[in-house]
Design a protein around this nucleic acid. Structure first.
Lengths: 221, 221
DNA sequence: TAGATTGTTAATCGATTAACAATC
DNA sequence: TAGATTGTTAATCGATTAACAATC
């Protein structure tokens, strides 16, 4: 049964997966408002996706709705929390205690997503040995020891681009199996380690490009 | 000629647009190393995309390569900087001086992307009237005045989800035309305002889901 | 010249959207 | 029952990949 659910989870397409947290957020809001059921039409009106797309997305999660009434809010919420891993807390480390790293260290929102940031690492003696947002910053030389001791598999990489690769290597050595990379460069890792890119430059490119078009269209009107 | 380039830019697909900053980053590295030309094969080896995809992406930018030699590094760099808007600096405001907002305010990288963060806004008296990373945090009531005075069109939204919509409304009133939304909720804005979502929860969902599959596969081996 | 490389047209693949049957 | 809503199969759309001609 559990291996069965694993294999079905495996084939959730990434675009769908990226929308699931939005459904979850809406569902938990509705739940706290006391809603018992919710239909795709209602979700569609609020989130702006088509009802068909929502139905298809939810089908991937294995959720089952009922004609006329829609989906049970509580049940759907549990299913989403399970798939998104919000129920079982996962420990993570931050490497690079610059502005972004420290901000992520203090970002309360992660708790809701089942992510527990244990500590951060840096080379700067101005940072190491101190607490930020109640969490310790250690020297990078301690990374391997602490990661292995606590069996931590997730690392958040927030060093400058120039140091991204060598830092990633250290993380791999320390047994990290998933790297959330905030540096805008590609990093090479062994096959059994996965990298998730978070590229603010890419998002900004989309934004500024759309804005360019918007203003150039308005000029021509 | 300039309207011509606008209409051609307009149809760059978003996936391509998101890859352009990575090409730019690589090109600027190669340029500083003194490289004169670069081929798709070489880019492919470094970034891990297929050479065909890279050629297609670059075709969208209007860049022209030469058989056998590839693309001129300097020329391609200029084209990318132009399309990505790195050459002309755009002013932006941050609304929400929490951890994430303050981090983005201090994030040096934005300069390279042509984004100049002018100031931040918050309601918290502990924050307002002070400088962070050399930039001022004003009370939210000053938003409209300052935005209009300086003609600022880009706003970065980093308030808690619960306040995202009302804050977005204030930004729209202040004349902001592009909102980079870091709150994990949908916000409603008029048609002439664009919203770019930056959802860390979505990325984290993809990461943790892939990690789940990775570990469950390894268990079954 | 031969071979590497670009640029373009066609084929494939996957996600979104549409259509419609099933059901409460 | 009638009508709203789910769930599924088919059609469409767009991005990626493949094939190949053009070119330096």
């Amino acid at each position: 049964m559990s291996s069965d659910s694993n294999s079905s989870i495996q084939q959730i397409p990434e675009p769908t997966l990226r929308r699931l947290p939005l459904y979850h957020q809406l569902l938990s809001e509705k739940h706290s408002e006391g809603a018992k059921n919710i239909s795709c039409t209602e979700i569609s009106n609020i989130l702006g996706f088509t009802a068909i797309q929502i139905r298809k997305d939810l089908a991937y999660t294995g959720a089952v709705g009922r004609s006329k009434t829609g989906y049970n809010v509580k049940e759907l919420l549990y299913i989403l929390e399970d798939i998104l891993g919000y129920t079982k807390t996962k420990d993570a480390l931050i490497v690079g205690a610059g502005n972004l790293g420290l901000a992520l260290m203090g970002y309360d929102g992660f708790k809701n997503y089942g992510l527990n940031i244990v500590a951060a690492f840096d080379t700067d003696p101005q940072k190491t040995g101190k607490l930020f947002h109640g969490k310790a910053v250690f020297d990078i030389s301690e990374l391997e020891k602490l990661a292995k001791e606590k069996g931590i598999k997730i690392g958040i990489l927030t060093v400058p681009s120039a140091f991204a690769q060598e830092t990633a290597d250290l993380m791999v050595n320390a047994g990290i199996k998933a790297i959330w990379n905030f540096a805008p460069v590609k990093i090479n890792v062994p096959d059994d380690v996965l990298v998730q890119h978070e590229n603010l430059a890419s998002s900004l490119a989309v934004l500024s490009h759309k804005l360019d078009n918007l203003t150039s269209v308005q000029r021509n009107e």
